[in-house]
Design a protein around this nucleic acid. Structure first.
Lengths: 345, 345
DNA sequence: CAGGTTCATGTTATCGATAACAGAGAAAAC
DNA sequence: GTTTTCTCTGTTATCGATAACATGAACCTG
């Protein structure tokens, strides 16, 4: 019904190469020792027939499914896209495919969706994006199912599974140094959402950079935000309304930094001439706005690649290497220099 | 290795219900006539054992794979996320799963990735997002493979497959009317990328709305853009620099509308007090910026649902219903009223 | 009431791969 | 020179479901 040409199976390849199906299977799996000459014959036959193994048959017969699951609830829109970019690149290179699902809703919905997902797809492993990766019940469900999983930038319960992340503390530290090196001494800071660990780390990095440069600052230079544009607008309005207003403002994410830029316009201030602004994350908005934001690029695609590689390598199944290796895999960030931060004249 | 508990198969369900495997299979597939009493027994057994059919076995034995493919090259970041939202919702409701891949690169890479994708995943159908859905070679590859496919907002070769879209012309027409009803008579327009059909349709909708309201306008009110922020900035600078500058500007997408807002600030003009701005698409940016943009919401999630439904229903396989039904499925847009458009005083 | 229909269910073969074991031949060991 | 070992390849059973066909009971129908 579905396909015009008959599917080419491992049997056809075997006949053409003049060997048994099993030998073909071995070649395809880079498996044990096959002589170079037969390997060449088989590869030639595979090429000639343009053979692709049937994933379902593989999955049914073997232990691997060649599918990796990606689960998320509600990260920002760009996050998923960028993650897919890196993940798919690595999947394609290794014959895997990505099955995606989304766990919105109540806690019990998340658990149910997660359980049904692993039960019905039988993926080799699951990747959890934030903030889903911090829901203990979901982690527990996955553990019970026996499916290995990797978390991206988790916040809590770091022992629960391997995870991939970036160093928020160090990034904030370096960004603060960058601002200081541009000549600024009066630097405002907008903290992120108090429930997210990244907020603490970024704040701490900022504080420590100031301290190590022996810069003191009045308490009114610190404002609490919630990672939203709106909260950034309120915080920025306070900061820019100060008699001794800061000459640079470091917002804990780009949305709030964009809000700072808008607030500056409303106050009749120019960015970056009157006030410098920097953000964090390097979302699409950061390079779209004028002036484009100096910010920290989160290596989302690279984290994705690392996560795929962890699952693919099978290290998560193996108790021995599980204990040997560290759970933590840190990927380098990048400080992106754009026009929103300027040398203080 | 992977799973602690032995997998429960259709055999276990059959034994527990005291029937044959085949009967269980029939119940699961809402298939032919099974007596209500046995159906109840089977369903009870399924519940008790928390049984989920093994997708690979189903796929291998049967004609359906319960996987649907999603292919794209480079739509905007938000597009993919929003599409996934709708698609996954519908998939979950019907026991399907979504396998995602991305076709970046040269033409021959796109073709190769597409071919490998359908060969190795054996999905029941493929959804193509723009602009990938307008690559004739990819369409040809899919046709040859015999895999049914649906396109989202295609631009060319509309006979090639069923597709889901919105009415760009009508949306632009209504938006223009909205501007006129707000009292504006001097309306600037920024055209989108000349290679994309949506640009023509939106432009034509704008023109026809003006004509039907008997409004004339000087040629310098029309500027060519390319759907990018940068091109919007240039176009807006020209429009706002005119001696008889328009009191409202309709940009063919939100990125360019955002640029118009920035350009207005640079010219010392306030939005919407001095100049109204409207966009198209309702991307994330549109509600993040200040003032938030009046725009047209593209029903991306709804188009996704419709596309899944087309594949799931199997209408694409069946030659008879293929000929009977129209290829075109239009989903309603929505005009989103926000602060960037104001009554002309 | 014999013979055909229909309905509900069971039986057997099959999808396309891998696992586990078996075996043949060459190289190494005694 | 025989046994052992190792390398390579083939055979058979199996994964968990559905397709296609077979069967037996109930139900008409003339």
């Amino acid at each position: 019904m579905k396909s015009e040409q008959k599917n080419i199976t491992i049997q056809h390849v075997a006949e053409r190469a003049g060997v048994s199906k099993m030998t073909v299977s071995r070649v395809l799996n880079h498996d044990s020792k096959v002589s170079d000459s037969t390997r060449a014959k088989v590869m030639a036959a595979v090429q000639d027939l343009n053979y692709r193994p049937n994933i379902s048959a593989r999955q049914l017969a073997g232990s691997k499914s060649y599918f990796i699951g990606l689960l998320y609830d509600n990260p920002s829109q760009g996050y998923v896209s960028q993650f897919l970019l890196g993940a798919l690149k690595r999947c394609r290179a290794s014959g895997y495919h990505l099955v995606v699902d989304e766990c919105q809703g109540e806690l019990k919905d998340k658990v149910r969706i997660t359980r049904d997902f692993v039960n019905s797809t039988r993926v080799d492993g699951v990747i959890l994006l934030p903030p889903l990766c911090d829901v203990p019940e979901v982690l527990e469900t996955l553990k019970q199912s026996g499916t290995p999983f990797v978390r991206i930038a988790p916040d809590v319960d770091l022992e629960a599974s391997p995870y991939v992340c970036m160093d928020d503390y160090q990034a904030a530290y370096e960004m603060t140094n960058e601002i200081i090196e541009a000549g600024h001494r009066d630097i405002g800071f907008i903290i992120g959402h108090p429930n997210q660990g990244a907020s603490r780390l970024r704040y701490q990095g900022f504080l420590d950079a100031l301290r190590s440069n022996r810069i003191n600052f009045p308490p009114e230079y610190i404002e609490q935000g919630y990672f939203t544009y709106k909260s950034g607008l309120q915080a920025a309005t306070k900061l820019l309304g100060l008699a001794n207003r800061p000459t640079a403002i470091f917002a804990s994410n780009d949305d709030m930094a964009a809000a700072v830029t808008s607030a500056a316009h409303i106050h009749g201030l120019s960015v970056p001439d009157d006030v410098s602004v920097v953000g964090f994350d390097d979302v699409e908005l950061a390079s779209t706005l004028w002036p484009p934001l100096t910010t920290i690029r989160q290596p989302i695609a690279e984290m994705a690649e690392a996560a795929i590689e962890l699952i693919r390598s099978g290290k998560l199944n193996d108790e021995r290497s599980k204990r040997r290796a560290s759970n933590r895999h840190v990927i380098d960030f990048e400080l992106i220099r754009r026009e929103s931060l300027q040398l203080k004249t």
